[in-house]
Design a protein around this nucleic acid. Sequence first.
DNA 1: ATACTGGATTTG
DNA 2: AAATCCAGTATC
Length: 771
Amino acid sequence: MSESKTLFDCSDGSREEAITSEIVFDHNLDRSFSYIVPEELGEIKPGQRVKAPFGKGNKKLNGFCISSEKTSNTKGLKRLSKIIDSSPLLTPELLELANWLSLYYVCPLGQVLSAMLPAGVKKGQGFVQKRFIKLNCSNIHEARKIYEKLREGSKQKSLVRILIIEHAFVASGGIESSELVKQAETTSQTLKNLINTGAAVSEKRAVLKSVQEQTVVEEPDITLNSSQEKSIEQINQKIDESAFGVFVLHGVTGSGKTEVYIRALANAVEQGKKGIILLPEIALTSQTILRFQKRFKRLAVLHSGLTEAQRASQWHKIKLGRADVIIGARSAVFAPCSNLGVVIVDEEHESSYKQDTAPRYNARDTAVKRAQIENAACILGSATPSFESYFNCKRKEHFKLLNLPERVEKRPMPQMQEVDMSGRRSFMSEFMIGEKLKEALESSLGSGEQAILLLNRRGYSNFIYCPECGHTIHCRNCDASLKFHLSEVLNQNSTEGLYNTSGLALCHYCGSRTLVPKRCPICTRQLTMRGSGSQKLQMELADKFPKAKIARIDTDSMKGKDYRELIEAFSKHEYDILAGTQMLAKGLHFPNVTLVGIVNADTSTSSSDFRSAEKTFQLISQVAGRTGRGSKPGKVIIQTAKPDSPAVKFAKLHDYDGFYKNQIPMREMLGLPPFRKQALVQVRNEKKTRAEEDAEEAAEILSSIIKTNGIDIRLKGPFEPAIGRIGREFRMNILLNAASPFVMMSFLTKARFSEIRRVRSKLFFDIDPLF
DNA sequence: ATACTGGATTTG
DNA sequence: AAATCCAGTATC
Ligand SMILES: [Zn+2]
Ligand SMILES: [Zn+2]
């Protein structure tokens, strides 16, 4: 209606002064759009969401206001339909962060802003309507009159008594109705009757949906050792000065990093500031959360176990300033608090901090940037810092390395032993437990102790294959073989007898599920499931240790509850051996575990991954940190095909710095991170030839920009990635390698608005990719 | 992204 | 001639 008016009625719109606003939307268009802000909508501020008519059909889209101005140049502009939020959802600092993310990660600003808000917040969840009751009078004298009129001992009288005690008069907020009814030990009907007499009134208000909170006993502070003291002193100095600084806190498991985090957070809170602590999703267990709950009363938790509404409620709690400390996974780096004192990233080397959909941000680097914007301290903690972070301490002004060399209570590091599996032909395919590991298990179990076996997922997968001709079932949409998953199989009647009834074939890449044929489509023999790696490991253990009780943890197939129950049972020694595919969450104490076996330490599957040695070192070191906890000395057995590799040798010696110094010359020589920055440009098209042609074209455009501007960037490709086709689309990669982050960012800012937009295939940018 | 164009190609 | 496909184009 109003749109058609603006179409013809140009004289009216183009002459007069009006407020216009730049709006960005959550779509792939890498630009903003101008709209007229109709006067009746009131003032508009950056960070508010709006509804705006968009495109030919004037479809109403949600967008974000990023700026506004007064102008008479309103020709051809449409009018905003609505301002959704009464106040901006994002602080100015978060808007600045969004801008940086958009530039650095080559992502439309609207997509960044959308990713910063939880889905529930965008849907307006997080609040519930509650009724509040107050006495229909303005002071205690009138209240007394009401009270005295009521019959002694009546339930209505006890309701009024509570209302008087709480001073719930007309001008007050009142008492929440169910809470009042509970306190007065009466029913909602009695309350209704009281309201009907006119003595009390009820008022509806939206309040934060409560997330069930445990009442916890506060714990006293632990005494710090000297290196902890030295670390916290430097961190607190930055917090006290409201100055930006990044601290890489290097300390093995058990060296007391968490206590340093808690002190830094507590100091920020004491100064009236806020703190954020990020943990990898798998480390966000109830035990970890509890540790922070014990110390911080006003804690907000953002983890994947929450429903959308619960998450929205936590978000609003933060927004309203009712949380001092925020604990959460990757996206908690966008927690909407103001006056931030410290941001902590625990296990900063973890690759799960990188988001694999747009915006492809790394929460660790985002945390550093946020701290810089907010003049806050940033702590990056790890037993095995990423080379990037360690390197930054040596090269960058604002980075400082803090070491926690000793383990608290002087627990000894475990004894490490590597076992060479390189000559063993059928290792992993036929057997997973070598003689040395078997002996060690026997001796541990013999003395009534427990053991953990870690199976590195990369080494093994549960393909569906034909034992006769070797044929494997491939995904119809991807260049990938399908994995067998136990599940309910529906629609049996029509395909009776032809398909496996106990499970489905799942594609790890596109998520498609298909029925599994019983017989090989090539030679008609029976197909076999290889079973998951951990299933196979469990069977081998059961075979070799018939008397032992064995628990298996499969993170893929396990619900949170089962997982917790199993962990609980294991800690009570209801099991002897725990076999799993994933590193167990930190903070778990198994004092009776004296042996940890790494079934296959070698992480890399593709040789192109220059980080594979770093990953192996991290894996072994993380495991080592988990043993030798209690009084008994720990032992770690490392089965590996590369026993002489630096990763294994230095991990055995618990020598991080030695490993770094061993590896870093190679990185420098090859021009790899942390010396240079990488970015991946991916071209996708359903037609292979088009993907290839367009990738060539894109590479040429990029090359010419590099050449004409004399930029220090090396371009590799286009080349086909390991998985050439995913979800029906063929992919071609172009790898960029820049002298510095600044060089990369300024080049990509040029490139994203260049001729490359002419390329018809879809383009994807992945900055600082992890392979 | 998404909707819509106009022209080319297929189809009955 | 109608239906379908496809590449190109604009989106305030
Ligand atoms: Zn076969
Ligand atoms: Zn697939």
